[in-house]
Design a protein around this nucleic acid. Structure first.
Lengths: 182, 182
DNA sequence: GGAGTCATGTAACAAGTTACATGATTCG
DNA sequence: CGAATCATGTAACTTGTTACATGACTCC
């Protein structure tokens, strides 16, 4: 699924500007699920408008560029539902953290260990964030609670596992030694 | 981290051809962590060879194109360790499944439910695969056991959560009804 | 005065995918 | 006889990022 389609989906929750969509990818309910830069969001919205899937309304502002507030059209909504009904592609994951863990035995002492520390801290932040999000009004629908709950369950499992098994990383032989004995 | 660097990392485990690297991304220990197509693997290896990070040896075969077996050089190994020591970027995730769950309330009855079925089946397959991988000889190093164990822990948590909470998805109001009451 | 927020947009670039080209062998 | 496996490589294309351009206002 491309960014265009995801933007369309976001607009089913209500109107938004490109700037607001970007923030939803960063701190909103899409954090950790999808991400996109301004350089892809703005052209995506422009094209959606050309195709008649959204409608852009310019809102004048003082001392700032006009705000372009987009709202989804009936056609857009139908198209989004159709796209989402066609099936879901496998997850696309690219985790530098996991790669670092796979090759942890090559890293000089302390580095992989620090990566685990960082990761645990990030997971804790993610849990706080998910708990907050679960309270916000538009996540009251059951499928949102499901999605947030799934994130909480897997993140908690990750923390518990890492805390219980991080000695497997600490014990890693430093790189130079590993190369010498190979 | 780009594909080039990950290919370099794979070669620290021993020599391999482009074809074999592709298989490692699909069924090997990198399944679910990273993925790449031939169109990016072959050029990556060519460039790594030009840069002196790997050495390519052509092996003649009957009735088939020459096999190019790549092995990592000392420079390549040093470069890879240096790159991996510079820190890890945040995970890059793009999950159509999670997007489908977020918008499940828009989908016609039964579809989101089927997606959950599929997902649980995939998770079970992933667990079988991880258990097999944990037995193979070159995953005996502790950090590999850690990585595999982390995958098992989070995947099991995901299955358990989905089985216990999938009613939140089943209960979803069909799309047309949802639109009418909005 | 510098950083951060709000706000949009484009051009140059990077990265990676898909499809094509080639071709023998083996398995069902 | 078709599909899968083994095996490499390139060109066209898609997608998306980074950096730049513009500009005011507010907080420290």
């Amino acid at each position: 699924m491309d960014i265009r389609t995801v933007c369309l989906g976001l607009l089913t929750f209500g109107e938004a500007t490109g700037y607001e969509i970007k923030k939803l990818f960063e701190d909103g309910c899409f954090a950790g699920v999808f991400d996109a830069s301004f350089g892809s969001i703005y052209p995506a919205l422009t094209r959606l408008a050309e195709e008649g899937f959204v409608h852009g309304r310019a809102e004048a502002q003082e001392g700032r560029p006009d705000k372009k507030v987009y709202s989804i059209t009936e056609r857009g909504r139908a198209y989004f539902i159709q796209e989402l009904s066609r099936g879901v592609a496998p997850d696309h994951v690219r985790s530098e953290f996991l790669i670092a863990m796979i090759f942890a035995h090559l890293l000089p002492g302390g580095i992989a260990d620090a990566y685990v520390d960082e990761r645990i801290a990030e997971c804790r932040k993610a849990i706080d964030f998910l708990n907050e999000t679960a309270q916000s009004p538009h996540t009251r629908i059951p499928n949102m609670q499901f999605t947030i709950g799934l994130g909480l369950a897997t993140t908690r499992a990750a923390i518990a596992y890492m805390e219980a098994n991080r000695h497997l990383i600490d014990d890693t032989t430093p790189a130079r030694l590993g190369a010498a004995t190979a």
